[in-house]
């Protein structure tokens, strides 16, 4: 029982990171019908730029309290990621609106690999140790179940950010413009919405969330490197599809569910397959879920808000 509880807790932690990243996928898909393949790389840029900032600050002012260091890391990571996302929309995706159907996706794959390569040039190929500024020493709220302060903060921060985003989309003028644009670009434009601005803003917002997710991810595992964004990116996309792509609540639900399935599944896969498969197959869950959802329930758990697009 304790093991199961422990795995659920672990799943919740990873799941909230997936959920944050999934929001970026789902917002862009909702508004452009584009799978922004490079969104996972934004997470990576967030983690690595925070790492550089923190390392530099620690060199200059080692007496700064850890939380302030982390804050400074975020303060650099968030605008950096927003700029990267803004540039990719402006320079690549914007020109491809209305291009033949495969072109934007192929471009997005290109952007993804380009960002990885650039990160490789800037930060090298090696794994970097990410300073764990929030304690990773687990506490025991229940006998036999462990959770660390960093994990608690991941859950709390994710929840706060998701709440903020949902409020922004549902309760503000800006959010209304975003929803209108997602519904229909032309009509939104006729209603006086600056569609280009809204689309750029969607990218930038998603990037901010990914930046935070990246810093949290790296803080949790204590590691950052140039390819760290790829798998979480794919999984977050899976989460978005699982919840119903284009649907904010769905992305969050999908993230949590995927995190739980992975954590619990990894714990029990050996028992289920009679020892044939072990936890090194953990990554397969996401792909199997992705395939299964797309094939059997393409609208996801909560339904797709955006209509079919070729």
């Amino acid at each position: 029982m304790e093991t199961l509880l422990q795995q659920i807790l672990n799943g919740l932690v990873v799941g909230s990171v997936y959920a944050l990243v999934a929001l970026g996928y789902t917002m862009v898909y909702g508004i452009l019908g584009l799978i922004n393949f490079a969104h996972g790389e934004v997470l990576m840029i967030g983690a690595l730029s925070a790492l550089t900032t923190i390392t530099a600050l620690m060199g200059v002012a080692p007496e700064l309290p850890p939380l302030m260091l982390l804050g400074a890391g975020l303060l650099v990571a968030i605008p950096t990621c927003m700029t990267v996302a803004f540039l990719m929309e402006r320079l690549a995706y914007r020109r491809l609106r209305g291009a033949p159907r495969l072109a934007p996706l192929i471009t997005a794959i290109g952007v993804s690999f380009l960002l990885q390569t650039v990160a490789m040039i800037v930060w090298g190929r090696n794994y970097h140790t990410f300073p764990q500024l929030i304690s990773t020493t687990p506490i025991q709220p229940i006998e036999g179940v462990f959770i660390s302060p960093v994990q608690i903060s991941i859950i709390v921060v994710s929840a706060l950010l998701m709440f903020a985003l949902v409020t922004l989309v549902n309760r503000t003028r800006l959010g209304r413009a975003m929803r209108a644009t997602a519904e229909n670009h032309r009509v939104a434009a006729l209603m006086g919405v600056d569609v280009n601005r809204i689309i750029a803003l969607t990218f930038v917002l998603g990037a901010a969330l990914a930046a935070v997710a990246g810093v949290m991810f790296a803080s949790n595992y204590g590691i950052a490197h140039y390819a760290m964004g790829f798998m979480p990116g794919l999984k977050a996309f899976t989460a978005a599809v699982l919840g119903g792509i284009g649907n904010l609540a769905g992305a969050m639900l999908g993230g949590i569910v995927l995190g739980l399935v992975e954590a619990v599944g990894a714990g029990y896969i050996e028992d289920f397959t009679f020892g044939f498969l072990n936890s090194s197959y953990q990554d397969i869950f996401a792909f199997v879920i992705l395939g299964a959802v797309l094939i059997f329930r393409p609208t996801g758990l909560l339904g797709e808000r955006v209509s079919d697009r070729a």
């Binding site: 799978i35 495969l102 996706l105 197959y281 990554d283 199997v288 992705l290 395939g291 797309l294 094939i295």
Partner: peptide, 22 residues
């Protein structure tokens, strides 16, 4: 993947490739 549309098909085939590699 017969019924999947273009972009979804791409991601699922990517997953297939990764599964084979795993």
């Amino acid at each position: 993947v017969l019924r999947l549309r273009g972009d979804y098909l791409a991601i699922v085939t990517l997953g297939f490739g990764e599964i084979v590699r795993i």
